Amino acid sequence: MSRGNSNSSNSGGGSHCYHFVFLLLTVSLLSPSASARFFPNVTSIPHDDFLFNATKTAWDAFRNLSGCHHGQTLDGLAKLKQYFNQFGYLPPPPANFTDDFDDSLESAIKTYQHNFNLNVTGQLDPHTLQLIQRPRCGNADIVNGSTSMNSGKAPTPFHTVAHYEFFPGRPRWTKSLLTYAFLPENQLTDDAKGVFTRAFARWSEVIPLTFQQTEDIYAADIRIAFFAGDHGDGEPFDGALGTLGHAFSPPSGRLHLDGDESWVVTGDVTRSSLETAVDLESVAVHEIGHLLGLGHSSVEEAIMFPTLSSRTKKVILASDDIEGVQQLYGSNPNYSGSSSTPSPPTAGQRETSGAPLGGDSTLGLTLLSMFVTVGSVLILL
C-alpha cells in the first residue's frame, strides 16, 4: 500500500448509533469537505461482552473465485479487479471493471504473486486467494506503476537481498524531534495512547529520531485518528478485516485507522475468542513505518509486510525494516544492533513475540468500543 502526499493517490459499520453531532474542524492542511464517522467514546470492555455484528469480513466473497483462470467469466472478478486497482496492480479502466478473467487481471495476479513470494501461476490458486483475503494495510504496494517489494533476486549464502521500498522520491523528515497528537473526538484511553508510545519507541530505538506526544493536534507533526467508512482522504475504510489503516509519507503526518475493527489494546490478542480481534500495536508500528517514509516489504517477517492476520501480534522490527529506515535516517548511536531483530521463525510459526501489553494475563483483553457518532467533517486530519 504506497501512499504519497496527495489526497487521492493509489492506496496504498457494524455499530450502534447513539446520537448525531456535526463537527467542523478547521485544520488548513488537508482534505476537502467529506462525510465521515468518528468515535467520540473509546472505552475499555471485556472482550466476551464486545458486541460486533460484522461476522463477514471485507473480502470473504473472494473465496468463491478459487481455481478461476484466464478466459473465464465469473461473478466477483470485477470486485477483485477493484482490489488490485486499490493496491496498485491494475490501472483504472476507461469504463467499469468487468467479470472477465482477461490479460490485465492475469498480469496483475502474477505481479502480486511475485511480490508476495508465491508461485507465479497467474491463477487464483488457494494460496493466492488466502493471502488476498487477509486483513492488510490500505497503502498501495505499487505506486506509479513500479514496485521494489521483491527485487526478484534470490538470497545467497553470502548476501541477503533487501526487499524494503521507499515512497517515490524517498521523502523523509528533516528534523529529529517529531510531535504527535490524537483526534480529540476519539477520546482514547491512556492504555490506547500508550500503545502508540511503545510503537514509536520501536522505531526511535534504531534511528536518531524522537517522538513526543502533544495535545495540540493542529500543531502536531503526526496526527492520529480513528475513522470508519469514507473519511475524506480518498481512501474509505471497508469494515472488519479489510484495510486496517493507512498512513501518508513525510511530511504529511496523517495516520488513519479503521474504527470498525475490533482493536485489542491490552492483553494477549493471540488468545482472543473474537475472530475479528486485531492487535492495535502491530498495526501502529507498521503505519508509523509509512509515516517515516518506508513502503512495503516482501519479507513476511518484516513489520512492513502488507498483511496482518487477525489475532496475530507482530511488533518487533526485522532486519529488513531496520536496514530500510536506517537508509533514510542513519542509525541511532545507542542502537546495539540486536535488540529489535527477531530470530527467524521456524516453519509454520508466526512471529507473536513482543513487549507485554499489560492487562489481565488470562482472558482480559481491552478493546476500543464501537459507539459511533455520525459527523459531517469539513477538514479531516
Rank of each mutant, 00 (worst) to 15 (best):
R3S: 14
N7T: 12
Y18G: 12
V27R: 12
L29R: 15
S31M: 09
P40D: 07
N41I: 09
N41P: 00
T43M: 01
H47W: 00
T55S: 11
K56W: 03
T57N: 11
G71D: 02
L80C: 09
L80T: 09
F87M: 11
T98I: 06
F101Y: 15
D102P: 01
E106M: 13
E106K: 14
N115Y: 09
V120L: 01
Q123R: 12
H127R: 11
Q130S: 15
I132P: 01
I132R: 06
Q133V: 05
C137W: 08
D141T: 06
I142Y: 08
K153Y: 08
P155V: 04
F166R: 13
F166C: 11
F166P: 10
F167K: 14
R170N: 15
W173Q: 10
L177D: 11
Q187K: 07
A192N: 01
R202N: 11
R202Y: 02
S204V: 04
L209N: 08
F211K: 03
T214E: 06
A219D: 13
A220D: 04
I224F: 04
A225F: 04
G229H: 02
E235P: 02
G242M: 08
P250K: 11
L257D: 00
V264I: 08
D268F: 00
T270H: 00
R271Y: 01
R271G: 02
S273N: 14
L274A: 08
E281S: 01
S282P: 03
V283E: 02
A284D: 01
E287D: 00
E287A: 03
H290M: 06
L292K: 04
L294T: 03
S298E: 06
I303D: 02
I303A: 02
P306R: 12
L308R: 05
I316K: 12
I316V: 14
S319F: 02
D320C: 06
E323K: 13
N334M: 12
A355F: 02
L367R: 05
L367D: 01
L368I: 10
T373G: 11
G375A: 14
I379P: 07
